[in-house]
Structures are given as structure tokens and as C-alpha cells.
């Protein structure tokens, strides 16, 4: 699945989307950054409610490509700035982490 599919196929709102053509191969759902740090796979998308700068730091350090902020959480400005400079995509949605995980799972399997 492509990053763009998250917007096109799921209708999630794009906050920032780097101009890269990467294949997303996996996803990880967690709100605990150490858990993400220790277990999330590379080239994956993080499904979380942690809308702050530290999520970008974690994603960037372990090579994740995108963050989906669930439950109508928004991305503060410094988080967006960090995402832009680290080329990480941010999407927002009113879906819960569970619903978002199911939808992303379907996309990954299709």
C-alpha cells in the first residue's frame, strides 16, 4: 500500500504528506512510545493518539513512514514542523485506534 492510499481509500485527512513514493508494508498500533520504539516494524505506519513531537522523534528514529492520529486528535504545530523536516506523513481521523487498525489491515492485505 502507498502512503497516498490512506487519504484516497480511507478518506483520512492529510496534515502533511512528503513527496515520496514508499511502499508501506506494515502497521503498529500503540500509545506507548517505548513500546513503539521496541516493537514497531520499519516502513510501517503508526496508529496512535499521541499527537505530539515525540511521536515524530520515535517514528523517525526507527524508520516509520507515517502517523495516523485517531479519535479526532490533532497535530500541534511543532509536531507538524518536525514531521516535515523528518519527511514523515501525518493523517488525522475520527476513527478509533481499533477501527483505524482494521481499515489499515484490510488495505495492507488487499
Amino acid at each position: 500500500m502507498k502512503l497516498q492510499d490512506i487519504e484516497k481509500k480511507l478518506g483520512y485527512t492529510v496534515v502533511t504528506l512528503p513527496d515520496v513514493d514508499v511502499e508501506i508494508t506494515d502497521a503498529y498500533t500503540s500509545d506507548l512510545l517505548s513500546d513503539v520504539m521496541g516493537n514497531a516494524p520499519e516502513d510501517s505506519v503508526l496508529i496512535t493518539i499521541q499527537g505530539h513531537k515525540n511521536s515524530i522523534a520515535v517514528a523517525s528514529l526507527i524508520g516509520m513512514q507515517a502517523i495516523i492520529l485517531c479519535n479526532k486528535r490533532s497535530a500541534p504545530e511543532d509536531m507538524v514542523d518536525a514531521a516535515i523536516s523528518e519527511s514523515i506523513a501525518i493523517f488525522t481521523t475520527s476513527d478509533s485506534q481499533f477501527i483505524a487498525s482494521c481499515k489499515i489491515g484490510t488495505l495492507l492485505n488487499s
Binding site: L32, L33, S34, D35, M37, G38, T48, Q50, H52
Partner: peptide, 12 residues
């Protein structure tokens, strides 16, 4: 609430 304190730091 910031996503820290999962108790996985040192184990990681």
C-alpha cells in the same frame, strides 16, 4: 499521557 513511562525503557 505523553506516551512515556511504559516500563519498557531499560528492558528495550
Amino acid at each position: 499521557s505523553l506516551g512515556f513511562g511504559a516500563g519498557m525503557g531499560l528492558p528495550n
